[in-house]
Design a protein around this nucleic acid. Structure first.
Length: 825
RNA sequence: GCGGGAGUGGCGGAACCGGUAGACGCACUGGACUUAGGAUCCAGUGGGCGUAAGCCCGUGGAGGUUCGAGUCCUCUCUCCCGCACCA
C-alpha cells in the first residue's frame, strides 16, 4: 500500500465533494432539519487557528447530522464591511471593495483546504448590494415603526478610528478594536431603540435560553441589560431655593432601589452634568468658590472620576423630604452618573457605602433606619444588609423587604412617586462616520426633515470614486454623492453620510442563509424557509461576542418579528462558545510573535491532522494550547490508521461475526469498538460535545484491534469489522482519510448512521474490585450470570488474609460495580 | 467589591447517578530493527519504601457525611474570566 499522503487524499476528496455538490441543503421540507452555523468571519485575508477551531467544530456537527439522515444547512459567508478595508486603502492605496473581495477569495481557499462541508450556493458577503438592499429596507421599517431615531447626544468617539462607538464597543474606556482611549463628544447620530426590548431580551434568557447557552453568557447579558426595580419620586425645593432658581425648577427626580431607607435620607446629590447644575452655572447663582469647585469637577471626564475619591460641594439650595418635610441640602457629587436614572440621588449614608464615604468626608449627618436582626451595626461603614426598620414613622418595626413594598405603595397613594424599572442597557448607536459600511438610507431635507429613501430606489450604494485619507467622513467629503432631491418634496436635499455599524450586518445574516436567495430575488428571505430552518440549532463562536453580536442578533430577530417579516423569538437554540487556541500560554498575536499559521500546518501535516489535533486537545469550551508534539501524535495516529488498513479484508458489507468462535481478546476488541460507537452517540445526544473523549475511545478500540492475532480467520473478521465501524466514527472529525479508506476498503458503504451491536457490548465476565474497609485489596472476575452468593464467596477468598481474625460487620455488594467488606477487630 | 468558572502525574486531559483515580495522547526510560535515527515497532511510566511479593501516600488545604468521596456538605487558599461608584 502506498504511504499516507494527506495532501493528495485531501485534494481528491475536496474535489469530489465540490463536484457532487455534496453539502447543499435539500429542498424537501418534510425532512427533519438541522441548522449548524459557525459565526461568520471578517475577511482579513488569512485564517487563524481560532477560525480553524470554530469551523471544524461546526463541521463536526454538520457531518454528524448528515450521518443521522438530517437535512443539514451549514453555510458560510463574509462579514465584509469594516474599518480594516479603509485602513488598507490608506496604507496601500487599494480600494476597499477590491481589497475585501480579494481577501474573500483567499480566505475561501484557505477554509476550503480544511475540508469543511459548507453549502456554496448560500454564500454571500454583507457588502453585496443584494444584501444591503434588504438591510436598508429593515432600517427604514424600523424608523417608520419608532425603533430607530436620529438624535444628538453625547457619544463615544474613537479618535483613532475617527468614528462613534456603541456602548457595547467600549471596553474599560477603550475602543474594542484599536484600544484607543475613547472621548465623549456631542454628535448627531442614529439610534436603534433596543431599550424597548430590554424586558423581553431579559425574560427570554430564562424562558428560552437557559440550559442551552453557556451560563456565563447568559449572566453577562443579564448584567448588561441591568434591570433594577425601585421607586421614582420628586424632591421639591424649599420656597427659598425655588426663588433662587427663579422658579424655573420645582425640584428634581430621583430613583432608588432602596425605598425602605427613605427615612434615612440626610442629603441629596446631583450629577455634575445635571440640568440644574447647568442652570446654576449659566445664571451665576453660585458663589465664586463653589462655582470654581463645580467647574473643576465637571472638567474631569466621567470615566476618570470612577477611580477618584468621592468629591462634591454644597450647591446652596435645599429640598424637602417628601414624607417628613425635613429640609435636606442639595450637593453636587462626582460619583453620581448623569446617564443613569435621572442623574440625581437621595443619599442614605447609613445604608449606602458611597453615600457613607461622602458624608464622612463632608461631615454630613448619618441616620440609621435599619437594624440588623442579629449583630450590631458596623462601626466604619454603611449597613447594606436586611433588618428591621427603626425611626421610620409608620413603617417602624417592619422588616425592610416588606417595608420596600409598603413605602412604594404609600408614595404612590400620596401621588408623590411611582414604582419604576430601570435598565442599564442604552440605545444602540449605529452611526459610523466611515465609508466602508452600509449607507443609512435617509435623506435630510431642509423642508421635510428626515425622509427615508423610497423602497424602489434601494439599495443606496456607495460611490466607488472616493478618497480615503483617514481624515473626516469620506462620504461627507464626496463632491456629489450626498446631493439628492428630496423624495417627498423634490427639493434640494442631502443624503445621510453616516454608514451603519457592521454589527447591524451580522444581526440578520443567519436568516438570509435559509433561502436560496439567488432564486428568490424579490425577498430578503422566504418566510417558509425561515420557518423550516430557524432557529439555528447549533451556533458556534467565540466568547468575545457574548454581549455585542449575540445581544444585537437577538434584538434584531424580535424586531423583525414585530415588523412582520418572521415568526421567531430567538435566533439561536444552542450556543457553543469555543475556547481560544493559545501558544505558549498566551493568545496568538502578531505582537507576541507566537502565531502558528494554519496554512503552514496544513501544508506540513494535512487538514485531517490539524482537525484531529484541535478536537483532541481538549473539550470545545476550554482553551487549548497549540503543541506541535501533540500534532505529531495526531499525525502518527492517522498514519497508523492508514498503514494498518492493509490488514483489512475488503468488503462492501460488514462482516458477519459469530461471537461463539471468538477468543477473549477478540470479544474485548469488539466491545471497545462498540463502546466507542456508543460514546460517540451519547456525546452528541446528551449534548456534551466532548469530542476529545470520543477520539480517545476510538484510539483505545484501535489499539485493542492491533493486538489481535490476524492469523486467525475470526481475528481478521473482527479487525475488519473494527475498521468498518471506526472509520465511520472518525468521518466527522477527519473526513478525508475516512472517506478514502472507506472507499478503498468498503466501497464507502460503512459511512452512515452509527449502529451499535448491543450484544458485542455485553461482556461474559465482570471484573469486581474487592475492598476491605473501603481500601481496594484485590479484584475478581466472575461470569455475568453469577449469583450474589457466588460472587461474595469468591471475593472473600480473594481477600482472605485481610479478613482472618476479623469480624465481617457488613458486606456491601453493588451489582456490576464493587464489593466492600466492612470488618472490625 | 459583586458575579461566574477552575484547581487531578513532568504536560494536555479522562473518570456515567458517590463505587478500581490517572482512560487517551504528549514527554520520558528501556529494548528491537538499523550505517544512523529526530522513522517505525514492543515494553514500562503518579510518588515513596522494597530484590520481590507487597505495603504506605496521593485529585490545592482543613474538617465532615458515607461501607466507600476527585465527585456531596462546611470552612479555607490559589488562579482565570466577566462586571464594576448603576443609586
Amino acid at each position: 500500500m502506498e504511504q499516507y499522503n494527506p495532501k493528495a487524499v485531501e485534494e481528491k476528496w475536496q474535489k469530489i465533494w465540490k463536484e457532487k455538490k455534496e453539502f447543499e441543503p435539500k429542498g424537501e421540507k418534510n425532512l427533519p432539519k438541522k441548522y449548524v452555523l459557525s459565526m461568520f468571519p471578517y475577511p482579513s485575508g488569512k485564517i487563524h487557528m481560532g477560525h480553524v477551531r470554530n469551523y471544524v467544530l461546526g463541521d463536526v456537527f454538520a457531518r454528524y447530522y448528515r450521518k443521522e439522515g438530517k437535512n443539514v444547512l451549514h453555510p458560510i459567508g463574509w462579514d465584509a464591511f469594516g474599518l480594516p478595508a479603509e485602513n488598507a486603502a490608506i496604507q496601500r492605496k487599494v480600494h476597499p471593495k477590491e481589497w475585501t473581495y480579494k481577501n474573500i477569495e483567499e480566505m475561501r481557499k484557505e477554509l476550503h483546504r480544511l475540508g469543511l462541508s459548507f453549502s456554496e450556493e448560500r454564500e454571500f458577503a454583507t457588502t453585496d448590494p443584494d444584501y444591503t438592499r434588504w438591510e436598508q429596507e429593515f432600517i427604514i421599517k424600523m424608523y417608520e415603526n419608532g425603533l430607530l431615531e436620529r438624535r444628538t447626544q453625547k457619544v463615544n468617539w474613537c479618535p483613532s478610528c475617527h468614528t462613534v462607538l456603541a456602548n457595547e464597543q467600549v471596553i474599560e474606556g477603550q475602543c474594542w478594536r484599536c484600544d484607543s482611549q475613547v472621548e465623549i463628544r456631542e454628535l448627531p447620530g442614529w439610534y436603534i431603540l433596543i431599550t424597548k426590548y430590554a424586558e423581553e431580551l431579559l425574560e427570554d434568557i430564562d424562558k428560552k435560553l437557559k440550559g442551552k447557552w453557556p451560563e456565563r453568557v447568559l449572566i453577562m447579558q443579564k448584567n448588561w441589560i441591568g434591570k433594577s426595580v425601585g421607586l421614582k419620586f420628586q424632591f421639591h425645593f424649599t420656597e427659598e431655593s425655588w426663588c433662587k432658581l427663579n422658579s424655573k425648577f420645582e425640584g428634581f427626580e430621583v430613583f432608588t432601589t432602596r425605598p425602605d431607607t427613605i427615612f434615612g435620607v440626610t442629603y441629596t446629590a446631583l450629577a455634575p452634568e445635571h440640568p440644574i447644575v447647568d442652570y446654576l452655572l449659566e445664571n451665576h447663582l453660585l458663589s465664586p468658590e463653589v462655582e470654581e469647585k463645580v467647574r473643576k469637577i465637571r472638567a474631569i471626564p466621567p470615566r476618570e472620576r470612577q477611580s477618584r475619591e468621592k468629591e462634591g460641594v454644597y450647591l446652596g439650595i435645599d429640598v424637602l423630604h417628601p414624607l417628613t418635610g425635613q429640609k435636606l441640602p442639595v450637593w453636587l457629587a462626582n460619583f453620581v452618573l448623569v446617564e443613569y436614572g435621572s442623574g440625581a440621588v437621595m443619599a442614605v449614608p447609613a445604608h449606602d457605602q458611597r453615600d457613607y464615604e461622602f458624608a464622612k468626608k463632608y461631615g454630613l449627618p448619618i441616620k440609621y433606619v435599619i437594624k440588623p436582626i442579629e449583630g450590631e451595626l458596623p462601626e466604619d461603614s454603611a449597613y447594606t444588609g436586611d433588618g428591621i426598620l427603626v425611626d421610620s414613622g409608620e413603617f417602624t418595626g417592619l422588616d425592610n423587604q416588606t417595608a420596600k413594598e409598603k413605602i412604594i405603595e404609600k408614595m404612590e397613594e400620596l401621588g408623590l412617586g411611582s414604582r419604576e424599572v430601570n435598565y442599564r442597557l442604552r440605545d444602540w448607536g449605529i452611526s459610523r462616520q466611515r465609508y466602508w459600511g452600509t449607507p443609512l438610507p435617509f435623506i435630510i431635507c431642509p423642508k421635510c426633515g428626515i425622509v427615508p429613501e423610497k423602497i424602489e430606489n434601494l439599495p443606496v450604494t456607495l460611490p466607488d470614486d472616493v478618497e480615503i485619507t483617514g481624515e473626516g467622513n469620506p462620504l461627507a467629503n464626496h463632491p456629489t454623492w450626498k446631493k439628492v432631491k428630496c423624495p417627498k418634496c423634490g427639493g434640494e436635499a442631502e443624503r445621510e453620510t453616516d454608514t451603519m455599524d457592521t454589527f447591524v450586518d451580522s444581526s440578520w445574516y443567519f436568516l438570509r442563509y435559509t433561502t436560496d436567495f439567488r432564486k428568490f430575488k424579490n425577498l430578503p428571505f422566504r418566510k417558509e424557509d425561515v420557518e423550516y430552518w430557524m432557529p439555528v440549532d447549533h451556533y458556534i463562536g467565540g466568547i468575545e461576542h457574548a454581549i455585542l453580536h449575540l445581544l444585537y442578533a437577538r434584538f434584531f430577530t424580535k424586531a423583525l418579528r414585530d415588523l412582520g417579516y418572521i415568526q421567531l423569538d430567538e435566533p439561536f437554540d444552542h450556543l457553543l462558545t469555543q475556547g481560544m487556541v493559545l501558544k505558549d500560554g498566551a493568545k496568538m498575536s502578531k505582537s507576541k510573535g507566537n502565531v502558528v499559521p494554519p496554512s503552514e500546518m496544513i501544508e506540513k501535516y494535512g487538514a485531517d491532522t490539524v482537525r484531529f489535533f484541535i478536537l483532541f486537545a481538549g473539550p470545545p469550551m476550554q482553551e487549548i494550547e497549540w503543541n506541535e508534539n501533540g500534532v505529531e501524535g495526531a499525525y502518527r495516529f492517522l498514519n497508523r490508521l492508514w498503514s494498518n488498513a492493509e490488514k483489512v479484508e475488503k468488503s462492501p458489507t460488514k462482516p458477519e461475526i459469530d461471537p461463539s468462535n471468538l477468543t477473549k481478546e477478540e470479544k474485548e476488541a469488539r466491545r471497545k469498538v462498540y463502546q466507542a460507537g456508543q460514546r460517540f452517540l451519547d456525546i452528541f445526544q446528551k449534548e456534551l460535545y466532548t469530542f476529545n473523549t470520543i477520539i480517545a475511545g476510538i484510539m483505545e478500540a484501535f489499539n485493542a484491534l492491533n493486538k489481535l492475532d490476524l492469523n486467525r480467520k475470526e481475528g481478521r473478521k473482527v479487525y475488519t469489522e473494527g475498521y468498518w465501524v471506526l472509520l465511520n466514527l472518525l468521518e466527522p472529525f477527519v473526513p478525508h482519510i475516512s472517506h478514502q479508506l472507506s472507499h478503498t476498503l468498503f466501497e464507502g458503504k460503512n459511512l452512515g448512521k452509527v449502529e451499535i451491536d448491543s450484544d458485542a457490548l455485553k461482556s461474559e465476565e465482570v471484573l469486581y474490585p474487592v475492598s476491605v474497609n473501603g481500601k481496594k485489596r484485590g479484584e475478581i472476575s466472575v461470569p455475568v450470570d453469577a449469583s450474589k452468593e457466588e460472587i461474595l464467596e469468591k471475593a472473600r477468598q480473594r481477600v482472605e488474609k485481610y479478613l482472618t481474625g476479623k469480624e465481617i460487620v457488613r458486606e456491601v455488594f453493588v451489582p456490576g460495580r464493587i464489593i466492600n467488606f466492612v470488618v472490625k477487630g
